[in-house]
Amino acid sequence: MTSLAVAFALLLILEGIGPLLFPNRWRKYLQSLAQLPGNQLQQIGGVMVIAGAILLWFLQS
């Protein structure tokens, strides 16, 4: 359970860097994401999940 908490903490840190350092760019980025069609967002999400799973697999080896 500790590893899961560490992973979640790192996620929050990494996700917070954008809005902390570049709030205006971050807002424009989110607005452009909101304009994408649903299937394109699903593809982006799928790529992110696969990339994360591969990275996790490499880190566990």
Results as ranks from 00 to 15, higher is better:
56 L>F: 06
33 L>N: 07
28 K>N: 11
55 L>F: 14
54 I>N: 03
40 Q>N: 03
30 L>W: 06
34 A>E: 13
24 N>K: 10
36 L>F: 08
28 K>F: 03
43 Q>V: 07
57 W>G: 09
12 L>C: 13
21 L>I: 11
1 M>I: 05
24 N>F: 09
61 S>R: 14
45 G>V: 01
53 A>D: 02
26 W>A: 05
32 S>C: 00
20 L>K: 13
31 Q>A: 10
28 K>C: 04
38 G>A: 07
13 I>W: 08
33 L>G: 03
48 M>D: 02
47 V>K: 12
33 L>S: 02
51 A>M: 12
20 L>P: 07
31 Q>L: 13
11 L>R: 00
26 W>I: 00
8 F>Y: 11
10 L>A: 14
57 W>A: 12
43 Q>W: 10
23 P>C: 03
55 L>V: 14
42 Q>Y: 01
48 M>W: 02
25 R>C: 01
60 Q>A: 15
57 W>Q: 09
6 V>L: 09
48 M>P: 00
50 I>G: 04
18 G>K: 02
36 L>T: 09
28 K>T: 15
20 L>I: 11
37 P>Y: 04
9 A>E: 08
21 L>G: 03
35 Q>A: 15
27 R>S: 06
20 L>Q: 10
27 R>Y: 02
43 Q>R: 14
49 V>D: 06
36 L>D: 11
12 L>R: 04
53 A>H: 01
14 L>Q: 07
59 L>M: 11
60 Q>M: 13
12 L>Y: 00
17 I>E: 05
49 V>H: 08
39 N>A: 04
8 F>M: 13
36 L>A: 12
49 V>F: 13
61 S>I: 09
50 I>Q: 11
21 L>Y: 09
36 L>I: 03
43 Q>G: 08
18 G>T: 08
46 G>Q: 07
19 P>G: 00
52 G>Q: 00
55 L>C: 07
56 L>T: 02
27 R>I: 11
48 M>N: 02
5 A>I: 08
32 S>G: 00
31 Q>G: 01
40 Q>C: 03
58 F>I: 02
15 E>R: 15
37 P>C: 04
59 L>D: 01
43 Q>D: 06
